[in-house]
Structure formats: C-alpha cells, structure tokens
C-alpha cells in the first residue's frame, strides 16, 4: 500500500514539476516581452516629448481653449501625450507577453488573452468614472457654495457616490463578475436610494413645504431695492 501511495505522490510531483517546467519558459518570455516593451515605451515616450517640446506643442495647446490642456490640469499636454504613448506600449507588452505564455500553455493563455481586453476596458471605465465623479462633485460643490446653498457639500458628496456606484456596477458588469446579481443589486440599491430620498422629502418636509407655500401666498409683493454695492 505504501508503495502505491509513494508512486502516486511521485507521479503527482512529476506532473507538477512537469507543469512548472512547461510554464517556466512562457513566464520568462512574458517577463522578457514586458520588460522589452517597457523599455521601448519609455524611449518612444521620451522621444515624443522631445519632439513635442521642439514643436512648442504646450504653448500651442495652452494658447487656445484646448481640450487636452483642460483635461491635464497638473501635467503639460506634451507630458500627457508622452504618458499615453508609454502606457500603450506597456499594454502591448502585456498582450505580447500573454500570447508568448500561450505557446507553452494554451488553455491558460487563451482564457487570459480573452480576458485582457475586458480588464483593460474595466480599468478605463474605473479611471474615467473616478475622474468624472471628482470633476462633477467639485463642480456641484463650488456652484452650490456660490449659490449660498448650505447643503452644497452634502449634494456634492451624493453626486460623487452616485457616479462611483454607477461606475462600480458598470465595471463589474464589464468584467462579467457577479452576473445578474450585480444588475439586481445595483437596481435595488439605486432604486432604494431614490425611493428613500423621495420618502424623506415627501413625508419629512410635508409640513415645511405647506408652511412655506402659505408664507409665500401671504407675502406682499416686494419692490426690488437697488443694490448698494456694485462689484463691477
């Protein structure tokens, strides 16, 4: 019996070692391809930045109401273009590396290769959602404060989380994780929030609204007073 156990262990060990030996060249090829594209990307991005600087790309973009300049608040437009080029190469390196992995193991690489576009799409969605949430939340906050709304911060936070939740659901859906649970969960959550808000406003402020309407109806018509302060 011990012989059979030993034989079984030996054969499983052999299988695992064999599997690793089969995968190892692919992993090495993946790392080599990734590093190679990383280096190429860095060099090309550097070259692109140099060329754009020589062409006075930043000045041209800053001069007009350029969309690139507006969406790259901290970085210069040439730096932004350089970064895009660099990350394109990194992405290509990952794809080439995964396909190199495929020469050693078809099943793993096939699954991974098929999933890479989804991962990339999800990453872009997540990034775009975060940027959008931050931008819109800040816009709402600043506009609200300039309109003297005391609840501007709350409003901004609500808008931010709405966009983030929506983004999260879209990302999970794009990754095909969770299946119908995500759709159902998001629908319930979103609908619940809206319903709760409607109930809160409808029931909680019923008296407030009626009092406000009564006050408005009873208020005499006011003649607009000329402003005493002129800002411009």
């Amino acid at each position: 019996m011990w012989q059979q156990v030993e034989q079984s262990l030996h054969s499983s060990m052999g299988l695992v070692v064999n599997k690793i030996a089969t995968l190892l060249p692919g992993i090495l090829a993946f790392i080599a391809a990734f590093l190679f594209f990383l280096l190429i990307g860095w060099l090309v991005a550097l070259l692109v930045r140099r060329i754009l600087t020589a062409m006075h790309f930043d000045e041209r973009m800053r001069g007009g109401a350029s969309a690139i300049a507006e969406w790259s608040p901290r970085a210069t437009p040439s730096l932004l273009v350089g970064r895009v080029v660099f990350w394109c190469f990194v992405f290509s390196g990952v794809v080439v590396g995964v396909s190199a992995l495929g020469t050693s193991e078809h099943i793993v690489s096939g699954w991974m290769l098929g999933y890479v576009p989804r991962l990339a799409g999800a990453a872009i969605l997540l990034l775009a959602g975060n940027v959008l949430a931050r931008f819109v939340a800040r816009s709402v906050l600043i506009t609200g404060v300039n309109l003297n709304l005391s609840y501007a911060r709350l409003l901004s936070m609500g808008v931010r989380w709405m966009i983030l939740v929506l983004t999260g659901a879209m990302v999970l859906d794009h990754l095909a994780l969770g299946g119908a649970i995500v759709e159902l969960g998001f629908g319930i959550l979103f609908g619940g929030i809206v319903f709760a808000l409607a109930l809160a406003v409808g029931l909680g402020s019923r008296d407030l609204v009626s009092r406000s309407l009564e006050r408005e109806a009873a208020r005499p018509v006011e003649v607009a007073q000329p402003e005493k302060i002129h800002h411009f």
Partner: peptide, 20 residues
C-alpha cells in the same frame, strides 16, 4: 492648472466676498 481653471476661479468667489 493645479485643478481645472473653472474650479480655481469658482472657488475664488467666497474669498472675494470675505474681502468685501
């Protein structure tokens, strides 16, 4: 362009009103 320029100018108004 620390943040979007529209936001920079928008965030300036309450400070200006403080000065006023």
């Amino acid at each position: 362009r620390t943040i979007n320029r529209v936001h920079v100018l928008g965030a300036f108004t309450p400070l200006y009103l403080g000065w006023v």
